[in-house]
Design a protein around this nucleic acid. Structure first.
Lengths: 162, 162
DNA sequence: ATTTCTGCAAACGATTTGCACAGGG
DNA sequence: CCCTGTGCAAATCGTTTGCAGAAAT
């Protein structure tokens, strides 16, 4: 499933760890494996479950302590999409400029890229006296299909109930 | 300070309360007064302090219970700008389509309107199969001035430390 | 009178942290 | 060996909620 070659991830991560005097541990390996073994978004808790599937000894605390490291490394992106849980997005390397559309109805997160949006963000930021570095953009919208049928195949059905 | 005539706010709010069988109470009045007596953004906790300045008897729970009512009424907007606290924006009536730029450095929240952004949001949403209703958009950026001087007059200085 | 509101304090849920031990360099 | 990483459980912090009394209709 993962589109990023595992070696690249490992390389970049090892470089990052080494550069910071951080150590390679079996738990971190399991977490990394889990974190980049999918293209789906996930929460810290979901990552914990996935990582435990690889190495039973991974603890919640270690997941929470490792996530910021992965984010710093530039391989993982942390999303604040308005819920009370942070969401993590492993597709950052391939699509560094993508934005997110969150469906209010079905909770589905859709990634999109749009050069016009890129351009417009830059213009607006500059006009206001800001550098467009490190920007995030999220659109919240309503799902047409969900509006009509009360359900939709885009989103995960359980999320819709929440 | 408030640009919205207080009567309009009261009228709309009373209509909203009446329509839902909700009661007018002194605590709610104080909260409303505080909520629309400024153009600044605020957190629930900050609103509590402001409301208590008007009516000492206002409790934290009542503020938290009243905020969703104000948001539903359409007069107050709830913003999720990525921190762990929700932010409330009383300027929604005057500028219904405005978006937000949050400075990573000085934490300042800047409101802006841009017809091109409007248009683009609509196009993108539609293209993806969503109705552009109820959308929110936030740009996160770095403050030029802050980058150069380590401080900036745009933002509130204390927020920058956080 | 009836029903909604309120304050208080306890409950909550995601995340963080102190501690003593385990394990990489 | 030394210092970082780990699991556990307790602590945080914003927000929510159960309850019994207070107030609005």
């Amino acid at each position: 499933m993962a589109q990023i070659p595992r070696e690249s991830v490992r390389e970049i991560l090892h470089a990052h760890l080494a550069g910071k005097g951080l150590r390679k541990t079996s738990q971190r390996d399991a977490i990394i494996e889990a974190a980049f073994g999918t293209n789906e978004h996930y929460t810290a808790e979901e990552l914990l479950v996935m990582a435990r599937g690889i190495d039973r000894s991974v603890s919640r605390a270690t997941v929470y302590r490792t996530l910021p490291i992965l984010v710093e490394s530039g391989l993982l992106r942390e999303l604040d999409l308005g819920g009370d849980t942070k969401i993590y997005d492993p597709n950052f390397l391939e699509h560094p400029t993508h934005n997110h559309l969150v469906c209010v109805d079905c909770k589905k997160i859709i990634e999109f890229e749009d050069p016009n949006m890129e351009l417009l963000e830059n213009c607006i930021s500059r006009r206001l006296g800001f550098s467009p570095t490190n920007k995030r953009l999220t659109i919240e919208a309503r799902c047409d299909e969900f509006q009509q049928r009360g359900t939709c195949k885009k989103g995960n059905p359980e999320a819709a109930k929440a």
